[in-house]
């Protein structure tokens, strides 16, 4: 039971996010109105994606240092699930933007940066599939994975500074932190972030265990 506590925590937090996020009172603002509730579903996707890509990068570094195939499997599967969360973030954002900005895609700089980041990780999987040798695939793709994760930083820190964004908190748009003076949103947002990150790790963990079993039966 000791090892399962975080899974229980994940379920509780996500249930709380769903119920409180959809039902609790939110600050009424022009244009945003009730769509402000998307904060609990859209933004945590990015947190989860970055956390999973981070785990992927760290396990790639560990693979390069130690050379155990388990680390390679961890790196692939976390990147895989991270990609899933990235796509979900893009979709939840597009639905929200359809109601607030008037169109699902408005060439906003953050949308473009996300698309670039996802392309980088799609390239990671294309690179992997071009090898037949397991060890060579693991080594070369680990090098690319570290490089790609490092190049996410210019995407996050340089490009958004060059252009204005439609996102709340950019280009003269007020950020959410100015709305929740009574901390209404924060009470749901922080648990939501933790809950979604735990869910991402949980999915990745199941996939990793599956791949490890496959590897074991493959080697024996």
């Amino acid at each position: 039971m000791k090892t399962y506590w975080w899974k229980a925590l994940c379920i509780v937090l996500l249930l709380y996010t769903l119920i409180a996020g959809l039902l609790m009172p939110v600050p009424a603002k022009d244009i945003l109105n009730e769509t402000i509730r998307n904060l609990h579903f859209h933004v945590p996707m990015w947190f989860t994606m970055i956390v999973l890509f981070g785990i992927s990068c760290v396990s790639s570094i560990q693979y390069l240092r130690k050379g155990s195939l388990q680390k390679d499997i961890v790196a692939v599967e976390t990147a895989n699930v991270g990609l899933l969360f990235g796509i979900m973030g893009l979709i939840t954002g597009a639905i929200w933007a359809n109601y607030t900005w008037g169109a699902p895609w408005s060439d906003d700089i953050k949308q473009l940066c996300t698309a670039i980041a996802l392309l980088m990780y799609f390239a990671y999987f294309v690179l992997r599939s071009s090898f037949t040798d397991i060890d060579k695939r693991a080594r070369v793709s680990a090098v690319y994975n570290v490089f790609a994760f490092a190049m996410l930083f210019p995407l996050i820190f340089i490009i958004p500074r060059l252009t204005d964004s439609l996102h709340p908190g950019n280009g003269g748009n007020p950020a959410f932190s100015q709305y929740d003076l009574d901390n209404e949103l924060r009470k749901v947002f922080y648990p939501a972030v933790v809950g979604w990150i735990l869910l991402g790790i949980w999915i990745a963990q199941i996939r990793i265990r599956m791949r490890l079993l496959n590897l074991k039966s493959f080697l024996s």
């Binding site: 670039i116 980041a117 392309l119 980088m120 390239a123 294309v126 690179l127 071009s130 090898f131 060579k136 070369v140 090098v143 690319y144 490089f147 790609a148 190049m151 210019p154 995407l155 340089i158 490009i159």
Partner: peptide, 22 residues
């Protein structure tokens, strides 16, 4: 990296273009 994969410029373009955008 692309040379290690024994691939031509096509793989390099896939890997490189997103990274070159910034």
């Amino acid at each position: 990296i692309a040379a290690r994969a024994g691939q031509n410029a096509a793989l390099m373009a896939i890997l490189g273009f997103p990274i070159m955008i910034p």
